[in-house]
């Protein structure tokens, strides 16, 4: 595979070195929200959204589930901070780092590529920047984070990462059939 940077329409990268924590709690409780904000330094995400400062992000997964993504180096410290900030609250915090894989699609036509994989509306109005949608990619469960107008991050279970990677490659390739534009596919 090529090591060059993505050019042309869509680039595909697998993201490594991330840790994921799942927090189950009543996410409408003020004490839980403020504790999470204090422990992570990020704003609490609205319904169906995620917040991020680049290195760290919080994602709204369901009314009682929050996903916390941090660099692997910060994982232990984040767990400690969260447990300290949420002491006395009814929560369950679990390190899910090895359960999931992340991919990043980048380029101006990612919405079109995504539309071939998912059943929801991938236009600006249906999937605004900041959105987090749990859905399915072809046949497997996953989640899509719209991080900016030209990047989307896709999460799936690690057990199906090769399937999703192949799927993305194929969908991008189909999009380019007949076009002489360079695509770089990089699996770090």
């Amino acid at each position: 595979m090529s090591d060059s940077q993505p050019e042309g329409y869509v680039g595909l990268h697998q993201l490594r070195g991330l840790s994921m924590l799942t927090l189950r709690a009543n996410l409408s409780a003020t004490k839980i929200k403020s504790g999470i904000k204090k422990a992570t330094g990020l704003d609490f995400p609205k319904h169906g959204m995620h917040t991020s400062n680049g290195a760290k992000s919080l994602g709204w997964m369901s009314p009682d589930e929050l996903l916390i993504i941090v660099d692997s180096d910060e994982c232990v410290q984040t767990i400690e901070n969260l447990n300290k900030a949420l002491v006395g609250q009814h929560i369950l915090l679990e390190d899910m780092s090895d359960a999931r894989a992340m991919f990043r699609l980048s380029g101006k036509n990612i919405r079109e590529v995504l539309a071939k994989l998912v059943p929801f509306d991938t236009s600006h109005s249906g999937f605004a920047v900041g959105s987090l949608v749990r859905t399915r990619f072809a046949q497997v469960a996953g989640a899509a984070f719209m991080t900016s107008n030209d990047t989307v991050e896709l999460m799936c279970f690690r057990s199906v990462q090769d399937y999703v990677f192949g799927l993305l490659q194929e969908r991008i390739a189909t999009w380019f059939r007949g076009l002489s534009i360079a695509v770089s596919l990089k699996k770090n």
Partner: peptide, 12 residues
């Protein structure tokens, strides 16, 4: 009614 999103039959 929990996520507030329109879900296609195949996601349910």
């Amino acid at each position: 009614p929990y996520c507030g999103l329109d879900k296609d039959e195949t996601e349910l």
